[in-house]
Nucleic acid binder design. Structure first.
Lengths: 336, 336
DNA sequence: TTAATAATACTCCGGCGGAGCATATATGGG
DNA sequence: CCCATATATGCTCCGCCGGAGTATTATTAA
């Protein structure tokens, strides 16, 4: 079982993808670039093993060069190597067809959107690509109107009865139906189900259906598998909020508790219980009250807070609590 | 900012590393292979982009071929691409010096150790490589005797005063000193600190110190950066236990609650409060009481349980609670 | 029969988080 | 100046979870 002797020198190209996220005026945004076929894509750079000692160094370098933003928080997300995702990428990259491109996805956070000087780059609200993930104004209409019915049809269309039941189970879990409860961090599960069911434009595109048609209400598609990478980032960020004080990578130096709450809400995609959020935020020790107040609140002035840098290190094991407001309504797929 | 045009066809080889973990008689074990220089290494296989549609398919295929184990639970851990880690690997692989090898690490779990038929493969207790991570019999002697004093010296040896304070801070957090509390999932932080401080053999080896000497009590070293990969796996598994019912990937079909507790303890590296563990395990709905009992307990017979497959899917969002027994003793590095 | 060893059953209690009510301090309009 | 409106902020009530410990029950070995 000496595997090393079997290690033959098959080579692949490695690309680095950054999901650079900010929250601006209650909107979560990611840095996007207009790709040659008109779709948005994530900033993408090659990894040059000659020049970069580590992936992260390489990533920081080309992001800084391209966007003049120096990255603060950076975390590796996942490495994507599936076949199928590479064909369009390899073509764009000028490689031979069939060249395999592996992407290492990274999540980067910044407190405010940097000005981008390139004409084809822009900050886009991420719910543009995932409208069903934003419950801040109640249940997104596209869910009940289009997505869930289509998923139910897909489940029913399975060959075997077991398979249909298994599909229904997955849908129920991912979308929190039948009282299972919406888990915001399952963004990737939801996207992958929709992809598998052929609801999103990428699915039609990857299966060479012409023209690539998607169900209305399933959001804008992105180049290659970038929407999958973005879903991974959203899920990771949402999950991590609960156990790491990562939210303060997205806050300005000073903020009111309501501002902080709005930033959290933008990320998790639903509204929080205000008083309980304040209580746990103050008790967490993660924020420090300054003596100043914000006056333009439209009501009583709000105390300004700043992140407690010490606690951010010490209590690295804790995050803010997410006091949910309303229970997810109990959808059903019919038979279960 | 069109990055695609900059995507040049630099190629690297991709390897897949598996941390295949089991718990056998209260010992957590990983599948290891004896490498050519006598050190243990993780099973390692090349990723062949021609043959494998996804990484995971490739991983499963060669692990099954090499070990006759068909992998159940598999999860991607991290992708390691740092320079420095590749030189020895590339040499072993017969590649040219300077060839870059990127490793995608995977964590795989199985309920019992499969018989391995290769002479150079074996299941090794992972605390052989991380003796400081096992607190089940109280504080590991190597910590206070060797590791913490050496780390304190390293911190004190920093050039600037700030740097020394920063080092002490990192040590305090990673090892839970001064009442910060031992966080078992920080296994990677601890290993990386020890590597940076030059305490582990790999550090001396990578810095070309001859002979590579390590502090006594810092565990057995592994080939290449495999101990780092293993530390990543341990930390990930320990963290995930708390919020996913992943422990049941490691249990036999039926088990007593004490057996389950011992498996958890083997992973997290400390003892749990027995009564509270039972209470939360039963209440979690993750286990189902069978009618049978285990008689050979040495005392009153114990009820046998099995995993509740339904709940494992439904309550995928929950894990077992880890009721800690004793508080970590309050070490100190002296000045803080 | 007794000691040893576990398994199992309860109790007590503090804190966290869900839910809601009450009060304080702004602004803008009559 | 007074009032409606909009927030910010303070406080209460309560159930559940999890930390800690005590008591009782069912085996096996001496």
């Amino acid at each position: 079982m000496n595997a090393l002797s079997e290690l033959h020198p098959a080579r692949v190209a490695i690309g680095l993808n950054a999901v650079l996220a900010v929250v601006e005026r209650e909107r979560p945004k990611v840095l996007c670039v207009r790709s040659e076929n008109g779709l948005w894509r994530l900033p993408y750079g090659p990894f040059d093993p000659e020049r970069h000692r580590t992936f992260e160094i390489g990533l920081r370098e080309w992001v800084e060069k391209q966007t003049k933003v120096s990255l603060g928080y950076v975390e590796q997300l996942y490495t994507f190597g599936d076949k199928g995702r590479d064909a369009p990428l390899a073509a764009l990259a000028g490689g031979a067809a069939g060249d395999r491109i592996v992407s290492v996805g990274y999540l980067a956070l910044a407190p405010e959107p940097a000005a981008v000087d390139a004409a084809d780059a822009a900050w886009r609200d991420w719910y543009e690509f995932f409208p069903w993930e934003d419950w801040r104004d109640g249940e997104p209409p596209c869910l009940g109107d289009a997505i869930l019915p289509a998923l139910a049809r897909w489940a029913g269309g399975a060959r075997a009865r077991d398979a249909a039941a298994a599909r229904r189970d997955r849908i129920r879990l991912a979308f929190g139906l039948d009282g299972a409860g919406w888990e915001e961090e399952r963004a990737l599960d939801r996207y992958e189900l929709m992809y598998e069911a052929g609801l999103v434009a990428e699915a039609a595109r990857d299966r060479n259906l012409q023209p690539a048609r998607a169900l209305a209400g399933t959001g804008a598609d992105m180049a290659s598998d970038h929407r999958r990478i973005l879903a991974t980032a959203i899920g990771r960020l949402r999950g991590k909020l609960k156990y790491r004080p990562i939210i303060f990578e997205l806050t300005p130096p000073e903020f009111t508790l309501l501002t902080l709450q709005r930033i959290v809400e933008a990320i998790v995609g639903f509204e929080l219980h205000k008083q309980n959020f304040r209580r746990s935020a103050e008790q967490s020790g993660l924020v420090i009250r300054t003596r100043r107040t914000a006056q333009q609140t439209g009501g009583r002035p709000a105390a300004l807070f700043r992140a407690n840098r010490l606690a951010l290190k010490d209590r690295a094991g804790k995050g803010l609590t997410i006091p949910r407001l309303r229970l997810a309504p109990a959808f059903s797929l019919g038979r279960t």
